[in-house]
Design a protein around this nucleic acid. Structure first.
Lengths: 235, 235
DNA sequence: TCTCCGTTGCACACCAGTGTGCAGCGTAAT
DNA sequence: ATTACGCTGCACACTGGTGTGCAACGGAGA
């Protein structure tokens, strides 16, 4: 043994093992994103391993999903706390939050789906702290009259970021204008006037270079290459 | 046989059979609303019959769910087409639509859940025509600059009425202010300015002509303590 | 009264998924 | 070369749901 520390300098064996583990987690995020009811077999083969191997890393399906969720929640929470730390107005903070969340939003969409279904209780519990953080941001906005108050902050925040994920899950998910649309939509339902919303997305995150593209770039009545099972599953 | 017609004047036997059938459908709507993965056994016992009896009326689980969905879609479509028939502005039509849908919204919430999951494809297909109708209404609003255009009508409409169902599913579901909150929220995300939204819900629907009709069919406050599994599941 | 038939209760067979045990294989470390 | 060990492939038991078959019960209708 040349390693008296804990984390640094893993043996090649241990490293490749962690690679497998991480790959399983990554792939599971995708697979479960497409079909929250996917079995361990599907996840395994998608990760290029055998079902038995998955059980070698995660004792149970719940364990895998919990690990998955903890990972995602940690990342999202980090972004959110960081954004909230700034002294910006709530609406600007929201825009920043969505902008930084967007690139990985399609990965975390699965959390909303996982919330229902078999392990919903557990996943819901893990998301609890994050939900509170988010609700707090919205509450701040409501208290400073930046956001509307037609709904309690807890619910309004859920609706707003649920809408963001719904859009991220749609065909617009990759397009940069998807981020813009998602941000504007969420701002609107938070009660931000459209002019203000447009102004915010215009200069806060995605500067001028694509400010013109808002109006239906692709009517998109047909497609839906996305979502293997249910096209346009929206909310 | 005293009955040469088809529907009218059923024998007592046939009537009680249809009662059982309808009761199963009704109960299934509630049970599946709480847990979309509920099995035939759960549905059966909730309806006060045995699992075997359910299979006597519906050859398969899919058949039950399809019948359920067709029923719901028919009702919702009727309301929507009726609302669209008026020459009101799109936003006013939307308000009217939500107002008339609200009393039964908690029953149809299950459709959104059913859309994912096992039979998602089939349910999605059945909802298709309704979705188009709804998208068309939103499109009309966009074309007349009543609704915003940050998203294509097809998606915007889904998001908006998804939000309505999400609110209907929440704790506010029974309170009349739930309807108000749902309407305002959906209007906001459709791009209607807050002042206009408030004005619309203020005098368009609840006051005089509908105030009595909006909550007619037995407030039904008791049934289904709601959300057995996941509290505040929102979107 | 007797017959019909919806309902019941229990019996199955049949999946599909989970989780485990174990022998063996290949490869990096010693 | 030998060991350690992650991965494989196959075995199995178990669970929980679906859908069916069938004898029996019981009330409404002839």
């Amino acid at each position: 043994m040349c390693n008296n520390g804990v984390v640094p300098t893993e043996s090649s064996r241990a490293r490749s093992m962690n690679e497998t583990r991480d790959r399983i987690l990554d792939v599971a995020l995708d697979v479960l994103g497409e079909n929250p009811d996917a079995g361990m077999g599907e996840i395994a083969s998608a990760a290029g391993v055998v079902r038995r191997t998955v059980y070698g890393h995660f004792p149970s399906r719940l364990d895998l999903i919990r690990t998955l969720t903890e990972r995602a929640v940690t990342e999202m929470t980090a972004v959110l706390t960081d954004v909230k730390a700034s002294d910006a107005e709530a609406d600007a903070a929201w825009v920043e939050f969505i902008a930084r969340l967007w690139p990985v939003a399609h990965r975390y969409r699965v959390l909303l789906a996982l919330r229902r279904g078999e392990y919903g209780e557990a996943i819901h519990g893990l998301l609890g702290p994050f939900d509170e953080l988010l609700a707090d941001l919205v509450k701040r906005g409501q208290d400073s009259d930046v956001f509307a108050q037609h709904l309690p902050a807890a619910m309004l925040s859920q609706l707003a970021y649920g809408a963001v994920f719904a859009i991220a899950d749609s065909d617009l998910s990759n397009a940069t204008l998807g981020a813009r649309a998602a941000t504007i939509t969420s701002l609107l339902m938070l009660g931000v006037p459209e002019t203000r919303a447009v102004a915010l997305v215009g200069d806060q995150s995605y500067p001028q270079h694509l400010s013109a593209a808002a109006n239906r770039p692709a009517p998109d009545t047909t497609s839906s290459p996305h979502s293997a099972k249910n096209p346009a599953r929206t909310v």
